[in-house]
Simulated scan of single mutants.
Amino acid sequence: MQTHNTRGIALVGFDADDTLWRSQDYFDDAQARFERIVSAYVDLADVGERLYAVEKRNIAFFGYGVKGMALSMVEAAVEITDARISAQDLHRIVGLAKELLRHPVELLDGVRGAVEAVAENHPVVLITKGDLFHQEQKVRDSGLADLFRRIEIVSEKDASTYARLFEEFDVTPKRFLMVGNSLRSDIAPVLELGGWGVHVPYHTTWAHEAEAELRHGGERMRAIAGISELPQALRELDAIARHAD
């Protein structure tokens, strides 16, 4: 994919979950229901923390997304209850995952207008991680697919993944800007490589995505309160990038 800007930011990437549409709300609800199921067997205040510990160690095996969470919930339920949990309640936990896979795609306020505004002056791509089938379905149902030059669904969003994508996109890091709600996955690795970022915090974030430290390039990032502020933030960073050239 070729980009035509010879100066400044030449390509803008967007995260999907909790940047373009709601996602974590549904996961939070599923976890709360999981905790209620397990709490019928044990009187513990840290059920959520113990679930996260299982999820974190399972990322290397199951990756991200609903199916990985479902397997982790089953494993955690057995561990936390010392295998006393009933088959019926395990079935209820699997049902939570199925509900997650069926939840509607609800765009956040102002998303389509903001993406269209950016796309008027910059080619845009979508970069998301998670379960392939589920992410494909959400992109399809969002009604936004036509706005993006490319849609990439990856297993991880780290510096090595972005470096590979930059080669495929035929763009250097200093010509790329990433928009997303996660400092860990969307912003920090891009800044580390020399790129630019716009952080759009969401009101709730999975604990794993909240574990982030910006050690590089903070001057190449803007934090905005909502997606409607993106075009202005992009103009500011693009001006800085052009001046740096």
Rank of each mutant, 00 (worst) to 15 (best):
residue 177 L to G: 10
residue 218 G to I: 00
residue 172 T to I: 05
residue 179 V to P: 12
residue 169 F to S: 01
residue 182 S to T: 08
residue 161 T to R: 13
residue 225 A to H: 12
residue 41 Y to H: 06
residue 84 R to L: 05
residue 244 A to P: 00
residue 175 R to K: 15
residue 31 Q to I: 12
residue 104 P to V: 07
residue 234 L to E: 06
residue 154 V to D: 06
residue 117 A to R: 08
residue 179 V to D: 08
residue 197 G to A: 14
residue 228 S to L: 09
residue 105 V to K: 03
residue 46 D to S: 15
residue 182 S to L: 07
residue 194 G to E: 01
residue 157 K to C: 11
residue 207 A to V: 09
residue 183 L to A: 06
residue 136 E to S: 05
residue 115 V to T: 03
residue 61 F to D: 10
residue 116 E to C: 01
residue 161 T to D: 07
residue 37 I to P: 08
residue 59 I to A: 04
residue 157 K to Q: 13
residue 188 A to I: 00
residue 134 H to N: 15
residue 217 G to M: 05
residue 146 D to W: 04
residue 245 D to E: 11
residue 148 F to G: 05
residue 136 E to L: 14
residue 87 A to I: 01
residue 27 F to N: 03
residue 129 K to Q: 11
residue 177 L to F: 04
residue 78 V to I: 07
residue 146 D to R: 00
residue 172 T to F: 04
residue 136 E to H: 13
residue 64 Y to Q: 06
residue 152 E to W: 04
residue 59 I to T: 09
residue 221 M to H: 04
residue 79 E to N: 10
residue 159 A to T: 05
residue 170 D to Q: 15
residue 193 L to Y: 10
residue 81 T to I: 01
residue 150 R to N: 07
residue 204 T to H: 13
residue 231 P to W: 03
residue 232 Q to F: 07
residue 166 F to C: 14
residue 225 A to C: 10
residue 194 G to L: 02
residue 107 L to W: 07
residue 53 A to I: 02
residue 128 T to A: 02
residue 90 L to Y: 10
residue 47 V to S: 08
residue 227 I to F: 13
residue 63 G to P: 03
residue 159 A to D: 08
residue 218 G to A: 03
residue 79 E to H: 01
residue 206 W to K: 15
residue 196 W to S: 13
residue 10 A to G: 15
residue 124 V to M: 03
residue 185 S to V: 02
residue 149 R to D: 03
residue 127 I to A: 12
residue 5 N to Q: 11
residue 182 S to R: 01
residue 209 E to T: 08
residue 232 Q to R: 13
residue 146 D to H: 15
residue 222 R to I: 13
residue 119 A to H: 04
residue 212 A to C: 08
residue 230 L to N: 10
residue 118 V to I: 11
residue 223 A to E: 14
residue 195 G to W: 04
residue 183 L to Q: 05
residue 18 D to N: 15
residue 191 L to P: 07
residue 157 K to V: 11
residue 120 E to F: 00
residue 7 R to E: 13
residue 38 V to I: 08
residue 8 G to E: 06
residue 39 S to N: 09
residue 221 M to I: 02
residue 38 V to S: 02
residue 45 A to R: 06
residue 17 D to N: 12
residue 244 A to W: 09
residue 110 G to D: 09
residue 100 L to K: 02
residue 245 D to W: 00
residue 98 K to L: 11
residue 9 I to Y: 15
residue 242 R to D: 02
residue 119 A to C: 05
residue 78 V to C: 07
residue 235 R to V: 13
residue 66 V to H: 06
residue 141 D to E: 15
residue 100 L to G: 05
residue 81 T to V: 06
residue 134 H to V: 00
residue 140 R to L: 07
residue 162 Y to G: 14
residue 89 D to N: 14
residue 222 R to E: 10
residue 220 R to S: 08
residue 189 P to K: 08
residue 230 L to K: 11
residue 226 G to F: 01
residue 191 L to Q: 04
residue 223 A to I: 06
residue 43 D to Q: 09
residue 42 V to F: 12
residue 121 N to T: 15
residue 106 E to A: 12
residue 216 H to A: 13
residue 226 G to M: 02
residue 193 L to S: 09
residue 14 F to R: 10
residue 217 G to T: 03
residue 211 E to D: 13
